[in-house]
Lab assay of single mutants.
Amino acid sequence: QNEKLANELKSLLDELNVNELATGSLNTYYKRTIKISGQKAMYALKSKDFKKMSEAKYQLQKIYNEIDEA
């Protein structure tokens, strides 16, 4: 289960640069939040902690959705 979550989180991290570029014309909230979420996700992957990875995955998905809707 950890392996599956780690792969999903890696996949979301692969999209980080594209989504970060998409924040160029948006409010600074999005820029700041996506950077923080990305850092948390990288830390969670290194720690291999299921709870941290779950939270990081949720945060990344949430900010990606917010950027898409903005």
Rank of each mutant, 00 (worst) to 15 (best):
Q1L: 13
N2H: 13
N2P: 06
N2D: 07
E3S: 07
L5D: 00
L5T: 02
L5S: 01
L5G: 00
L5I: 07
L5Y: 02
L5W: 02
A6R: 08
N7A: 13
N7I: 11
E8C: 15
L9I: 06
L9Y: 01
K10C: 06
S11W: 11
S11R: 14
L12P: 00
L12W: 02
L12C: 04
L12N: 00
L13I: 07
E15I: 13
E15C: 14
L16R: 03
L16P: 01
N17C: 15
V18L: 13
V18C: 13
N19D: 04
N19W: 15
E20S: 09
E20P: 06
L21Y: 07
L21N: 06
L21W: 09
A22N: 08
T23S: 09
T23M: 06
G24I: 14
G24H: 15
G24L: 14
S25L: 10
S25K: 12
S25G: 10
L26A: 03
L26Y: 04
T28M: 13
T28N: 13
Y29C: 11
Y29N: 03
Y29K: 05
Y29E: 04
Y29L: 04
Y30F: 11
Y30W: 09
Y30R: 03
Y30P: 01
K31R: 10
K31S: 07
K31V: 06
K31W: 09
K31P: 03
R32I: 14
R32G: 03
R32M: 12
R32D: 07
I34W: 03
I34Q: 00
I34E: 01
I34M: 05
I34C: 04
I34G: 01
K35M: 10
K35F: 11
K35A: 09
K35C: 12
K35I: 10
I36K: 07
I36M: 09
I36P: 00
I36S: 07
I36N: 05
S37T: 13
S37A: 15
Q39F: 09
K40A: 09
K40V: 07
A41V: 03
A41G: 03
A41L: 02
A41P: 00
A41Y: 02
Y43T: 12
Y43P: 01
A44Y: 03
A44D: 00
A44T: 00
L45C: 03
L45W: 08
K46N: 08
K46W: 10
K46R: 10
S47I: 10
S47M: 11
S47D: 04
S47K: 05
K48G: 14
D49E: 05
D49G: 02
D49I: 04
D49M: 03
D49H: 03
F50I: 08
K51F: 09
K51R: 09
M53A: 01
S54P: 03
S54A: 12
S54V: 13
S54Y: 11
S54F: 10
S54W: 11
E55Y: 08
A56Y: 02
K57F: 13
K57S: 04
K57D: 00
Q59E: 12
Q59S: 07
L60H: 00
L60A: 01
L60D: 00
Q61E: 11
Q61R: 06
Q61Y: 05
Q61G: 03
K62S: 05
I63A: 03
I63T: 04
I63Y: 02
I63N: 01
I63Q: 00
Y64E: 01
Y64F: 11
N65K: 14
E66V: 04
E66A: 09
E66T: 04
E66R: 06
I67G: 02
I67R: 02
I67F: 03
I67A: 02
D68K: 15
E69T: 10
E69G: 07
E69F: 11
A70V: 07
A70C: 10
A70W: 10
